[in-house]
Write a protein that binds this DNA or RNA. Structure first.
Length: 846
RNA sequence: GGGCAAGUGGUGGAAUGGCAUACACGCAGGACUUAAAAUCCUGUGGCCGUAAGGCUGUGAGGGUUCGACUCCCUCCUUGCCCACCA
C-alpha cells in the first residue's frame, strides 16, 4: 500500500504513555464543573480480557471521552472484583497462594486494559481482596448487625457438594450450582443472613425512579421481589388444636377446596403422624422427597407424588371435613408451605386429585359451559366466571370475589372459635378469624455465609460466656491468614488455622473462637462504586463530601446477567447507607445500559463452546483502534454483536483512509474562509460538515447510537474524497482543513490513538485531544435554499422535485400538475386530495 | 404456564408514520501490476425487460391512514428472564 498507518503499535504505545504520565484522566473534585460518573461493572480478574470485556469497556470509554470533551468533570475508575472461588481452585490445582495468583492475574489484566487505551483514572484502582478494601466490608457487616439486619439462623441451605459450600438462592440455577453446574443438595447449617427483606417494599417502590433503566431489568427485579396479595386461611386439624395456615391468591375458590396439602418438610407433619400406623411409610416418603434434588423435584413434567397422612382438617368457611395430604409439589419455601387444593380450578391440584381419586366441586361457572359437571372435567377451569356453590357469594364475578371474600374472612370468626366476632386485638395469635388478608414476597433474606477461604472474614467471635461478640471496629480488618493449606475438602480451610481461630473474647478476655465463615463475594461488589469516590481514605469507608459530589453513578454499564443479583444488592446497600445518614440519594445508578453479548457463528462466545476470539490477537494484527471501531460500528450497544473476522478489515481500511487523507491533503494555511470565494461545492461541504457534527452529537446523546454516528463520519469521508479543494485557493484549503479537523475530533472518542497522532500532526498545542472541546455546529450553514420534495400518486413514488424552501403549497401543486411524468400517472382523473408535508413529501390522491 | 425483547438483501445493520435496504462486510466486473496483495472505480433485494421503465418486496394474515418496516388486532418463529409461586 502506498500510504498506510505506519506502525500503529508504536503510535498506540506512545499515546498510552502520554495519557498515563500527564494524568490526562485524573478526576479531581471541581465544584465549578458539572460532574459525570461513568462506571462499568468491574471484572473478576481471571487474567486475560475477553471480547465481552472489550465491548463493555469500549462503550464506557467512548461515553467518558465524549463527556470529557463536552466539558464535564468525568470520573471513570476501574478495579477488580477479586475474591472468589477460581483463586482457590487455582490454589488447589497449582499449589499457589490465592493472593499471589490473584495479584498476578490483576497485573496481567491491568496491562491488557492499558493496551486498550481506556480513559481510566488509574490512581483510583482498587481490588476487593485488599485488606484496606475488605475491612470496610466488615465495617458494613457490623453496622448491619447493629441495626438487626445481619443475623445467624439454623436452616436448610443449598449445598454444593462439588464446591463444598453453601449457595444463595440466587446462585442456584435450575437446581445447579451457578459456577460449577453440579447438582445442589439441601443441608442443615448455622448461617449468616442479611435481612434484605426489610427493604422489600422500598426496593420495589423505588424501581419507579429508574426511568433510565432498560424496562426489562426493572421487570426482572419486580418479578424477583415478587409481591403478591392474598389471604392466609386457617384450617383447623380435626381432633387437635393445631391450625394449618394456607396462603392463597385465589380466595374466590375457597368453597371448592376438597383437601389440604402440606409440604413434606412442613413442621406440623411429624407431629400429626406421630403414633399412626402409617407413620413409617409416610416417613419413608418424606425422606425420599428430601433427598431429591430441587432440579428433579421442580421439573415441570414430573408426576406429582404424595399421600394422605390419615388426618382431616376443617374448612373454616363451611365447616366441612376434608383430608390432609402431603405432596412434593408443595414447597416449604413459598407461602406457608401448605395449600388448600381446589382441583376444579387449579391444574396441578386437578392432576393430583385425579391420581388419588379425590372429590371435585365446581365453584366458578364457565360461561361457555355453564352446565358442566365436575366428573366430566378434563382439565381445571382457570379462567374468569361467576361463583356457584359458594353460599352467600354465589353469582359474584370471581375477580370481585377475591376481594370480597378476603374482607369477609378477616371479619368472620372461624366456626371452631366459639366466638361471635373474631378477636381483632390479638386476632392473629388468637386464630379466631377465618383468615387474614396478607402480602407475600418472593424475595428471601440473603444467605451470606460461605465456607471458603478466599473471601472477607465475617468479623465475629464466639465466647462461651458472652456469646456472639462483634469484633470491635478499631480491630478491623480481620485479616485473612497467609500461607494456609487449601485442599478443597472438609469445609472452610480457615477452620484449620489455629492462630486465626483461637482468640481472646474482646469483652471478657476469655478463650474464644473466631467465626471462620467468609462473605459471599456479591457483598464486595454491592458498594464499590462508593469506594471509588474516596479510594484511599483510611479513616472512613468513603468521604461524605466525595460521595456527595460524585454519586450517584450517571451511567452504569454491564451485562444483563447481573440484572437481578448484583443490581438488587447494590440498591439494598445504597438504601442502607441512606438510612445511616451517609448519603442522600435512594438509587445508586441513574442510567443503566446493558450491553449485548458477543456472538460467533450465531452462538454466545464462550470458552466452553470454544468459539472465542482473543482480543490480543486482533490487536496484534490491527491495533486497538480498529478493534474498538469495529465493535462500536457492528451493532448498537444493547444488541447482540455478531463477530466477523472480515468486517474488522473495513474498520482498518476506514482508519487508513482518514490517515491518508490527512497526510496528503492537510496544508498549514490560515483558517480563514471568505464567503465570496465559496462556490457551490464549498457550500455543500460546509453544510455536510455541520450536519455531521449535529448527527454524531445527537446520535451519541440519544441512546448511544455509536453505529450510526460512525456511519455518518464514513459518509463525510466519502464525500471528502470527491471534494476537489485546490491548494492554490486558500478558502478551499481552509474548508478542507476544517473538515479534516472535525472528523479527527468527532472520531477521537472512538479511536483515540490515531486521532491523537493526527491531531498532533495537524498542529495542535493541547496535551491531548481529550482536552479539546467537542465541535459545535453552525445551524445557519445547515440551511438550504433548495429542497427536494418527493411526489407520490396514490402513495406510490412518481417523481422528485427540487424546489425553493419557502415554496407555497399552491405553487408546488401547480408545478407538479404541470409535470409530464406526473400527468401520465394521473391519467386525466380528478384529484380528490392533495397532501403536502413541507420539505418532505406531496401525495396526490385520485 | 407467566413476563420481556426481536423478526428487514448473501451477512452485520439503517430508516420508528412520509423516497425501504443508509453505512459496512461479502460477492461480481474493471483500473493499476509480469503476477499477487494492497489501493482505486463501477455494480449488487426479487421478478419482467436489450433498454427506458414497470411490477413486487420489511415473518404470516387482517385493520387504521392520503401514506405503515414503523401504530392496532390475531397468529407463527427465535432469543432472554422467571416459574409445581398456591
Amino acid at each position: 500500500m502506498d500510504y498506510s498507518i505506519e506502525n500503529i503499535h508504536t503510535i498506540e504505545a506512545k499515546w498510552q504513555k502520554v495519557w498515563e504520565e500527564a494524568k490526562v484522566f485524573k478526576a479531581t473534585i471541581d465544584a465549578k464543573k458539572k460532574k459525570y460518573y461513568v462506571l462499568e461493572m468491574f471484572p473478576y480478574p481471571s487474567g486475560k480480557i475477553h471480547m465481552g470485556h472489550v465491548r463493555n469497556y469500549t462503550i464506557a470509554d467512548v461515553i467518558a471521552r465524549v463527556k470529557m470533551m463536552q466539558g464535564f468533570n468525568v470520573l471513570h475508575p476501574m478495579g477488580y472484583d477479586a475474591f472468589g472461588q477460581p483463586a482457590e481452585n487455582a490454589a488447589i490445582k497449582r499449589k499457589v497462594d490465592p493472593a499471589e495468583w490473584t495479584y498476578s492475574c490483576i497485573d496481567q489484566m491491568r496491562t491488557e486494559l492499558k493496551h486498550m487505551g481506556f480513559s481510566y483514572d488509574w490512581d483510583r484502582e482498587l481490588a476487593t481482596c485488599d485488606p484496606e478494601y475488605y475491612r470496610w466490608n466488615q465495617w458494613i457487616f457490623l453496622k448491619m448487625y447493629e441495626k438487626g439486619l445481619a443475623y445467624k439462623k439454623a436452616s436448610s441451605v443449598n449445598w454444593c457438594p462439588s464446591c463444598d459450600t453453601t449457595l444463595a438462592n440466587e446462585e442456584v440455577i435450575n437446581g445447579e450450582c451457578w459456577r460449577c453446574k453440579s447438582e445442589v443438595k439441601q443441608k442443615e447449617l448455622d448461617q449468616w443472613y442479611l435481612k434484605i427483606t426489610a427493604y422489600s417494599e422500598k426496593l420495589l417502590e423505588d424501581l419507579k425512579q429508574l426511568t433510565n433503566w432498560p424496562s426489562r431489568v426493572v421487570a426482572m427485579q419486580e418479578n424477583w421481589i415478587g409481591k403478591s396479595f392474598g389471604v392466609e386461611i386457617n384450617f383447623k386439624v380435626k381432633g387437635s388444636d393445631d391450625i394449618i395456615k394456607v396462603f392463597t391468591t385465589r380466595a374466590d375458590t375457597i368453597f371448592g377446596a376438597t383437601y389440604v396439602v402440606l409440604a413434606p418438610e412442613h413442621p406440623l407433619v411429624k407431629k400429626l403422624i406421630a403414633g399412626s400406623k402409617e407413620e413409617s411409610k409416610i416417613k419413608t416418603f418424606i425422606e425420599k422427597v428430601a433427598n431429591e434434588s430441587k432440579s428433579l423435584r421442580m421439573s415441570g413434567d414430573k408426576r406429582k407424588e404424595g399421600m394422605s397422612i390419615g388426618r382431616t382438617a376443617i374448612n373454616p368457611v363451611n365447616n366441612e371435613e376434608i383430608p390432609i395430604y402431603i405432596a412434593d409439589y408443595v414447597l416449604m419455601e413459598y407461602g406457608t408451605g401448605a395449600i388448600m387444593a381446589v382441583p376444579t380450578h387449579d391444574q396441578r391440584d386437578f392432576s393430583f386429585a385425579k391420581d388419588h381419586q379425590l372429590p371435585l366441586r365446581i365453584v366458578i361457572s364457565d360461561p361457555k359451559n355453564p352446565a358442566q359437571r365436575a366428573e366430566d372435567m378434563k382439565a381445571a377451569y382457570e379462567d374468569e366466571g361467576v361463583l356457584i356453590n359458594s353460599a352467600q357469594f354465589n353469582g359474584l364475578n370471581n375477580k370481585k370475589a377475591i376481594e370480597e371474600i378476603g374482607k369477609w374472612m378477616s371479619a368472620t370468626p372461624a366456626p371452631w372459635s366459639g366466638e361471635t366476632s373474631p378477636k381483632m386485638k390479638d386476632f392473629w395469635r388468637g386464630e379466631t378469624a377465618i383468615g387474614k388478608v396478607t402480602i407475600h414476597w418472593r424475595l428471601r433474606d440473603w444467605l451470606i455465609s460461605r465456607q471458603r477461604y478466599w473471601g472477607t472474614p465475617i468479623p465475629f467471635i464466639y465466647c462461651p460466656k458472652c456469646g456472639t461478640v462483634p469484633v470491635p471496629e478499631d480491630q478491623l480488618p480481620v485479616a485473612l491468614p497467609k500461607n494456609i493449606q487449601i485442599t478443597g475438602q472438609g469445609g472452610s480451610p480457615l477452620n484449620y488455622v489455629s492462630e486465626f481461630v483461637n482468640v481472646k473474647c474482646p469483652k471478657c478476655n476469655a478463650a474464644a473462637k473466631r467465626e471462620t465463615d467468609t462473605m459471599a463475594t456479591f457483598f464486595d461488589s454491592s458498594w464499590y462504586f462508593l469506594r471509588f469516590c474516596s479510594p484511599t481514605n483510611d479513616k472512613k469507608i468513603f468521604d461524605q463530601a466525595d460521595a456527595k459530589y460524585w454519586m450517584p453513578v450517571d451511567q452504569y454499564i454491564g451485562g444483563i446477567e447481573h440484572a437481578i443479583l448484583h443490581l438488587l444488592y447494590s440498591r439494598f446497600f445504597t438504601k442502607f447507607f441512606k438510612d445511616l445518614g451517609m448519603i442522600d440519594f435512594d438509587e445508586p445508578f441513574t442510567r443503566l445500559l446493558t450491553q449485548g453479548m458477543v456472538l460467533k457463528d450465531g452462538e454466545v462466545m464462550s470458552k466452553s463452546r470454544g468459539n472465542t476470539v482473543d482480543p490480543d490477537e486482533i490487536i496484534k494484527k490491527y491495533g486497538t483502534d480498529s478493534l474498538r471501531l469495529f465493535i462500536l460500528f457492528a451493532a448498537p450497544p444493547e444488541d447482540q454483536l455478531e463477530w466477523n473476522d472480515n468486517a474488522i478489515d473495513g474498520s482498518w481500511r476506514f482508519l487508513n483512509r482518514v490517515w491518508n487523507l490527512t497526510q496528503k491533503r492537510y496544508r498549514f494555511v490560515e483558517d480563514k474562509i471568505l464567503a465570496d470565494q465559496m462556490d457551490q461545492e464549498d457550500k455543500d461541504l460546509e453544510r455536510e460538515r455541520n450536519l455531521t457534527i449535529k448527527k454524531v452529537t445527537e446520535d451519541i446523546a440519544d441512546g448511544f447510537k455509536f453505529n450510526t454516528a460512525i456511519s455518518s463520519l464514513m459518509i463525510l469521508m466519502n464525500r471528502l474524497d470527491k471534494y476537489k479543494g485546490e491548494e492554490s485557493n486558500s478558502t478551499k484549503q481552509a474548508i478542507l482543513n476544517r473538515t479534516i479537523k472535525s472528523i479527527v475530533l468527532l472520531l477521537a472518542p472512538f479511536t483515540p490513538h490515531i486521532c491523537e497522532e493526527l491531531w498532533q500532526k495537524i498542529g495542535s498545542k493541547e496535551k491531548s485531544v481529550a482536552n479539546v472541546s467537542w465541535p459545535s455546529f453552525d445551524a445557519t450553514a445547515i440551511k438550504q435554499d433548495l429542497i427536494q420534495v418527493v411526489v407520490q400518486v396514490n402513495g406510490k413514488l412518481r417523481g422528485k422535485f427540487d424546489v425553493a424552501v419557502d415554496i407555497s403549497e399552491a405553487q408546488l401543486k401547480e408545478m407538479i400538475l404541470a409535470d409530464v411524468t406526473i400527468q401520465k400517472f394521473l391519467a386525466g382523473q380528478p384529484i380528490k386530495k392533495f397532501i403536502y408535508i413541507p420539505g418532505k413529501i406531496a401525495n396526490l390522491v385520485v
